[in-house]
Design a protein around this nucleic acid. Sequence first.
DNA 1: CGGCCTAGTGAATCACCAT
DNA 2: AATGGTGATTCACTAGGCC
Lengths: 366, 366
Amino acid sequence: MNVMTKGADALPLNQILAGDCIDVMNSLPAGSVDLIFADPPYNLQLKGELHRPDNSRVDAVDDHWDQFDSFRVYDQFTHAWLKAARRLLKPNGAIWVIGSYHNIFRVGAELQNQGYWILNDVVWRKSNPMPNFRGKRFTNAHETMIWAGKDENAKYTFNYEALKALNEGIQMRSDWVLPICTGHERLKDDAGDKAHPTQKPESLLHRILVGSTNPGDVILDPFFGTGTTGAVAKMLGRDFIGIEREETYRKVAAKRIGKVRKFDRDALQTTTSKRAEPRVPFGQLVERGMLRPGEELYSLNGRHKAKVRADGTLIGADVKGSIHQVGAAYEGAPSCNGWTYWCFKKDGKRVPIDLLRQQIRAEMAN
Amino acid sequence: MNVMTKGADALPLNQILAGDCIDVMNSLPAGSVDLIFADPPYNLQLKGELHRPDNSRVDAVDDHWDQFDSFRVYDQFTHAWLKAARRLLKPNGAIWVIGSYHNIFRVGAELQNQGYWILNDVVWRKSNPMPNFRGKRFTNAHETMIWAGKDENAKYTFNYEALKALNEGIQMRSDWVLPICTGHERLKDDAGDKAHPTQKPESLLHRILVGSTNPGDVILDPFFGTGTTGAVAKMLGRDFIGIEREETYRKVAAKRIGKVRKFDRDALQTTTSKRAEPRVPFGQLVERGMLRPGEELYSLNGRHKAKVRADGTLIGADVKGSIHQVGAAYEGAPSCNGWTYWCFKKDGKRVPIDLLRQQIRAEMAN
DNA sequence: CGGCCTAGTGAATCACCAT
DNA sequence: AATGGTGATTCACTAGGCC
């Protein structure tokens, strides 16, 4: 095995180790790693094929490494790798694990059972998720990450001020809005297809490593894939250890990381986000009780009225639909801004519903 | 016990039942409930509120468990109430459970172990959470809800179009931005303090009940608290069954629900899906003379044509069959909606045959 | 070079009824 | 229980071609 470089305590830093992650982790020295980031198989259990409404086929994650015979087998796998991982952590080390509803509950329970201490669950809200094509469920628009210390007393690293700076001076929350990995960042194979089905965005790892490691820390990723963890660790001046079974992924990752340049120190604070006015669905006014189902709205000119329904649509004399549709129909216009067209009665006076939208936006800004 | 009102199958609708939720659930008839919403206790310290599956009381106040025992007892409690809940569900019933990282992973794993089929995990993203004052972790700004069917094959209720309407015409996602319960909605006791420590906002229940129940459905809440589920169910014209151990909460909830008014009937009508529309066989268009045998139909893109036959099938250059089969064959697609694919000629212009189906449906409605 | 249009795609547990 | 026919269903974003 080529894992060790010198003595028994030498760490193979900034390398991608080949093999099963449990075997490799067991061969590394205990208590040697500051942070673990793990993106284990999700055990998706997909059945048939799925097509988009335009009949194109969805390229599913049906790789052999995601197949498990049962929850029992998956639990045994989870138990084994989390145990090996915990042995490697320094006393004040911590772990991040990412997953979906298929596997994350089992992972979280096992973390607790082994004595890891959960610090937060963090939700990655995808700004551009794949829709639910058949209209049978909610758009699966997020993934869940669990951040846990090695045990209840671990003095984990948390760079509060750096995260606050990343978030325009506001305390970082447990929900992070980030786009999925697309475009030039998404690695391709020689045929031009995606090199890995589940490549994570660098922005995600950037936030994790800035927030929970310091320069010079050692970060282990036992499911290295195409090496997002290694690439971001290198940029940020951290050391990494990657473990990956598949040779193709290792090759892609090595090439990628070779091209990465470490950031200048002061180049780090450039990830600012411009914030557009958040979209507020009219239905939220109903859900929040600002308008009641059955309540009447009046057009700005006073000539028309319509009744609010429980799902946030309006029903008038002979039309029903969104605030915009009903307004347009009444005016015989091709379109209509329902927010400024419709008013509710307050103390006998007509007040545009846009006022209620502004209240919600003010809340969201906090 | 005052649970039953008439025979063994009578349900105590729109009542708040006193007692331990496991006992009470076991006394209710199996297969009688459409939806369960559950907000179980989160804390693992238990504080004497729990019973073992054999109904022996867990005396937590004087004990100091180590962590493992604490998780074990919580798991037993979770196992027991989820099992009792599953017995009550109709074959096509579903459940929602809300929790935080302290308990949700154990709840989710137990749901899967019992054969519930997870449909989504939904994140309630709080627009005004309590900050993390000590700056040692991320602001805990969300809670997690799990939506699951009774089993893998349950035909759960999902009002896709109503939810889409609530979200301004865009498919509803798995992350919901809603404020926590404050202001007038937050119930106070006689001393002016909050009546319940974890009162859920009505907006949350509004979205859940609009999305996954129909008017007249029976909704059970085994941890009723101050009755948000019952209040919203009543507004929306659903029936509820509440179970609550604490008399103070039952009193507050009863008073609250008594004041709630049901929304108007037409306000409860929500946008429905096309699947609910009556099926019209294509052959009817021929029988009724809206299309004549021998008449030619043209594909929407203009590239293909086919001839109508007397039995309501189409014949093309080298295929024959239903409107859907011939369309799919021409497009080399796995499936095709012939109603929107095929057009007939009217005044020289191509018009989709779906227009004729709509005429028939309009007649049927009268 | 910019604007406009078309094509492609992403960790997905994605029908239902009649026979 | 298994089969086969009908027919319902998508959002945000990127890349690249054309003008």
